[in-house]
Amino acid sequence: MVFQIILLIMLAYVVGFIYFGLYRNITARIQGRYRPTVYQSFYDSIKLFSKKQSVSYGWMFYLGPIIMATGAVLTLILVPVFSDSDFLRSVTSQGNLFVLLYLMVLGPLGNALAVGTGGNPFGVMGVVRGLTRLIGLELPFYIAVVGLIIAANSSDIVHIIDMQKIGGLNIINHPLLFIGAMISMVGFFGESPFDIPGAPQEVYSGPRTEFSGKFLALLMSQGSLFAFAKLVLIVDLFLGGADSLEMLVLKTFAIFVSIIFIGIVYGRYKVEQAVDFLMKLPTLIAVLGLARVVWFG
């Protein structure tokens, strides 16, 4: 089992960084400039892992990236990756959707705890914005997840996948829930218009201001691990899971590309504007989807 966990982390690392490289390539193509290679993120990550952290703020400051990495790895191993196989089935049967929802907010909270001890006002402002944004992001997503749990009568993800194999994909049966969840996902991935915590023109890159060397590499890596985990979660919940590596890559890439295409052409909201928007239209869409599930089955 330990071997399978390590294999999964390596798979997520590789696929996540290749997706990040593709993201940089696609963005460069749209912006009309030269592109880096697809493997650029690997080079960056390896270079950063080999450097030292230049300033030191005590042990509490370093807990931030470690807590975020913990949340990312736990989410990764609790999400069922291949639906028809026994890959890590003993672990994923322990977790269900509620555990995963808690783990998804572990990252920002842990970061908030740690960055505050650094003393840089930009970091503190960045994490406060991130937490405020989380209020808005959670609402449509949680309503969509509740709708799915009611529709499938269980909170076990494997069960939801099996129901989709019988009754049809959730994206076709519950389109309103899908739309509400996807709008939240744009923010969870850190894309415009909700990429508020690390705004360089406003708070000088926010929570990441004081990290360098190995801890910055850890932040980058956990970001891509987490991104992969979230993509697989969406694929499991709405697109019926994946039974082979090709289908997994295809479906996650489709979701990934649709999210980044939204992010490239939009600017950035202010925090209260983002929460205001998220509490109105996406929540309304998700609530309508939920009502449809409850009253019409």
Partner: peptide, 8 residues
């Protein structure tokens, strides 16, 4: 445009 985060 850069000041509101639109890098395009």
């Amino acid at each position: 445009a850069g000041s509101i985060g639109l890098g395009l």
